[in-house]
């Protein structure tokens, strides 16, 4: 198994506040991984660091051997928790944009997904609701044939039907050469879909294990374990 993501002593501070401290991590290719932790535990900061949107205070990150940069961006498909689309564009224009900038983007796949979610490619993003925009973004991100998908809270704000579709999409798009990292604090919904989980607590890595190992060793679900680890 090759390593898709490796962190050594990864630390990020904002001013005096330590948001991530000394994370050592090595993730194998071909897994669906849950990045779990309550709000403010450093999940988004971690994902932004991998995406080169932030620069580490200390330590280093390697994505398939590359430092965050042009080469890593070619193989990472990122779904932020923000809606980042240019409001003036139509959906089909943003699809063209993705086709132009990402070699691994498949426009036909994006159109197919949009259709399943009842979204009209001719609509302007300006006229869409927040939920619809999030779905458009998901289609764009999953229509890439990336090595690493980083999905930041993809099931946070959407309705149950869309959530099921998202999970289905994730299962359908999964292949042995790609890795999916999903950050969330709603574990019960996605536990079945995960191979592996990482727990972040106050910026520290407190657990990193296979889901079925946790269930076998602890005799409880990851969701239950999560609630025990993070009970206030």
């Amino acid at each position: 198994m090759s390593t898709i993501l490796e962190c050594k002593g990864l630390t990020k501070t904002f001013g005096r506040k330590k948001v991530l401290s000394n994370i050592d991590l090595e993730l194998e290719t071909g897994k669906i991984i849950g990045l779990l932790g309550p709000n403010g535990s450093g999940k988004t900061t971690f994902i932004k660091l991998v995406n080169d949107l932030l620069t580490p205070t200390a330590g280093e990150i390697r994505i398939a051997g590359f430092k965050p940069g042009v080469e890593s961006k070619k193989i990472v498909s990122y779904l932020p928790e923000k809606t980042y689309l240019n409001e003036w564009m139509k959906v089909e224009q943003i699809i063209e944009f993705f086709s132009d900038f990402y070699e691994d983007f498949h426009a036909d796949k994006a159109y197919e997904m949009l259709q399943k979610l009842n979204l009209n490619p001719g609509d302007r993003l300006k006229t869409m609701s927040k939920g619809m925009k999030e779905k458009v973004q998901l289609c764009l991100v999953m229509a890439r044939q990336a090595k690493l998908y980083l999905l930041d809270e993809p099931i946070g704000g959407v309705d149950p039907a869309a959530r099921d579709y998202i999970l289905e999409t994730i299962i359908n798009n999964y292949n042995k050469d790609s890795t999916i990292i999903i950050s969330t604090h709603l574990i019960a919904d996605i536990e079945k879909v995960l191979d592996y989980v990482i727990f972040l607590k106050d910026g520290e890595l407190v657990l990193s294990s296979f889901v079925d190992e946790i269930r076998a060793e602890q005799g409880k679900s990851v969701d239950k374990l999560f609630k025990e680890v993070f009970k206030c």
């Binding site: 071909g30 359908n172 079945k192 879909v193 995960l194 889901v211």
Partner: peptide, 17 residues
């Protein structure tokens, strides 16, 4: 495997196993 995993809504690796 993919169809079974989809039906059960579980991770394909787990179904594979």
């Amino acid at each position: 495997v993919r169809d079974l995993a989809n039906e059960a809504a579980v991770n394909p690796n787990t179904m594979q196993r």
